[in-house]
């Protein structure tokens, strides 16, 4: 498998002062699902925004390193260009155009210029992946339920046939049963559409289940990486992200001292 997207030692600061990423390298190979795990404020979203170039809109700058997509440098371009070349970011928090209907929302994600018949074809593809959406297509998105919005948002990213999809916390605020469903769909998209996926998650358990490879971020650095199965077996990951102790039982907070000692490698 060849590498399609590679982030090489990037450093990012906001307002030219606050350094958030301190040399982050990530590699996404063709057809892979790569998970990016980490606690709040680790820099996961910033990494995604650096790739999609949305950083500029919020006074963030890439001050070092570079990002290449299919052999071309993309860290100095504009967000709409990134989207056109085939990297679509699905923003955190199920961002919909609230006053649009589902179909209008999906159409807004269409990037081609081949006209109505092509749009319809793409819409049908999305509807076949999300059978719930055609029933909702004339409903105003602001009033949909969280799960429906999340499906719509992923569908909107799919409509432009991306080569890489950057998913930012698709499980945020959803019920466990919906999370399972969303992850199943993500796996399906990866299998059927051959879309590579860079998945940012706090729900490490669910993410490692479908991912091929995973990175763990802390304080703007990658602190650990490896194939997903390996990380699932890793004692530290089990303890800090999956909430299990070595024997597989739930960890008690009585042993918090032990936690502190073990966590040293992270800081």
């Amino acid at each position: 498998m060849i590498s399609i997207l590679s982030v090489n030692q990037i450093e990012v600061s906001y307002h030219k002062v606050i350094q958030v990423l301190k040399g982050v390298s990530i590699e996404v190979r063709e057809g892979q699902i790569v998970a990016l795990l980490g606690a709040n404020g680790a820099g996961k979203t910033t990494t995604l925004k650096a790739i999609s170039c949305l950083l500029r809109a919020e006074a963030g700058d890439i001050t070092g390193g570079d990002i290449t997509f299919m052999g071309k440098r993309i860290d100095r371009s504009m967000p709409h260009y990134i989207a056109k070349t085939g990297i679509i970011q699905v923003l955190e928090g199920r961002r919909v155009f609230p006053h649009f209907t589902v179909e209008e929302n999906l159409r807004a994600g269409y990037l081609g210029s081949s006209g109505e018949s092509d749009i319809r074809e793409k819409l049908e593809t999305v509807y076949s992946i999300f059978p719930r959406l055609p029933e909702l297509k004339h409903r105003v998105c602001g009033f949909l339920s969280g799960g429906e919005q999340q499906m719509m948002v992923i569908g909107r990213a799919l409509i432009s046939n991306p080569k890489v999809m950057l998913l930012d916390e698709p499980s945020l605020g959803l019920a466990p049963i919906l999370i399972a469903k969303i992850f199943e769909i993500i796996k399906r998209i990866n299998d059927e559409q051959k879309t590579s996926i860079l998945l940012v998650e706090q729900n490490a358990l669910a993410a490692l289940e479908i991912a091929d490879y995973a990175y763990v971020m802390e304080n703007g650095r990658i602190v650990m990486d490896g194939p997903a199965e390996k990380l699932q077996e890793n004692e530290d990951i089990k303890e800090f992200y999956l909430g299990l102790s070595s024997v597989g039982s739930r960890k008690s907070y009585k042993e918090v001292k032990h936690y502190k000692r073990r966590k040293r490698w992270l800081s």
Binding site: L54, P79, H80, L91, R95, F97, E104, A108
Partner: peptide, 19 residues
């Protein structure tokens, strides 16, 4: 449609590839 999309959410519009 793209113009109406921009009027609702700038960042989201950019992430959808709207210039």
């Amino acid at each position: 449609l793209r113009m109406r999309a921009v009027s609702q959410d700038h960042e989201l519009a950019m992430s959808c590839g709207i210039n």
